[in-house]
Amino acid sequence: MKAFIDFVASEDCVSFGKKLGFSRLLFNELSRDKISKTKINIISPKSPEESKRQLRNKMIDIILDPFDKRGLFIDSAFLNIAKQKQISIGISFSKFLRADENSRIRLLHNMRRLTALVSKLKGDLVLMSLAAEIYEMRSPEQLILFGEMLGLSRAQATWCITESPKGIIRRKSL
């Protein structure tokens, strides 16, 4: 049986996630100033400049949703460096869920472009729910379906919620 791993933004979700079928849930707040060696550091950049700046930081593990309404913050050069430095690119389901119907269109477009770019350059992609409450949580099967919605194959989407986070945990020796 596969070990599904998810990242959540609230401690209440940790116990509930196990009922849904996750074997491990990691409670992670988005860390802008609070970067530490002992935990997985997830950064959500607000601009292309910020994402480039964060790439120089050795402590960063995941760069989350590097895009806004206008487009992606990253390019192929950025992704190659991220790959060398073992920094993963993250996509959160909660961001898509919270958006209204009209902004979901733009969001889905950007997420699909990002997924295509990362899988083309063989980067490390992590799918996470990042739920702030239990109603934002989804089962592993539904996260895989979300991955398929973004253009990944079933095997790739499964990899993004099993092996990719496992690699980060191993690196951080948590």
Binding site: L97, Y135, R138, Q142, F146
Partner: peptide, 14 residues
Amino acid sequence: SLIREISFNKCFVH
């Protein structure tokens, strides 16, 4: 999996 609420009650479909 994108349903967030049913008749103003927060929920999700499993």
